[in-house]
């Protein structure tokens, strides 16, 4: 499964752990919006993913 993990702020330990669990079994892409945003790419990433998780 392709999962897009969108991070709006730096992930804390729990969020990091959950992303690692996803990475162990799935094709995961992490987008760190707090480091800068490319919205065109983000739209493509959102629609190419099977699941999107918009973390805090």
């Amino acid at each position: 499964m392709k999962i897009l993990e969108i991070l709006k702020s730096e992930p804390d330990e729990t969020v990091q752990k959950m992303i690692e669990v996803h990475k162990a079994e799935h094709d995961v892409k992490v987008v760190k919006l707090y480091e800068g945003a490319d919205y065109d790419s983000l739209v493509d990433d959102i629609f190419e993913a099977d699941k999107v998780v918009s973390w805090w």
Partner: peptide, 21 residues
Amino acid sequence: SSDKHLDHVVGLTKAAINKGK
């Protein structure tokens, strides 16, 4: 649901509409 990310909301919305979404 938060009041912190309006720039992202606007940026993503415009980009999505420009791509025909």
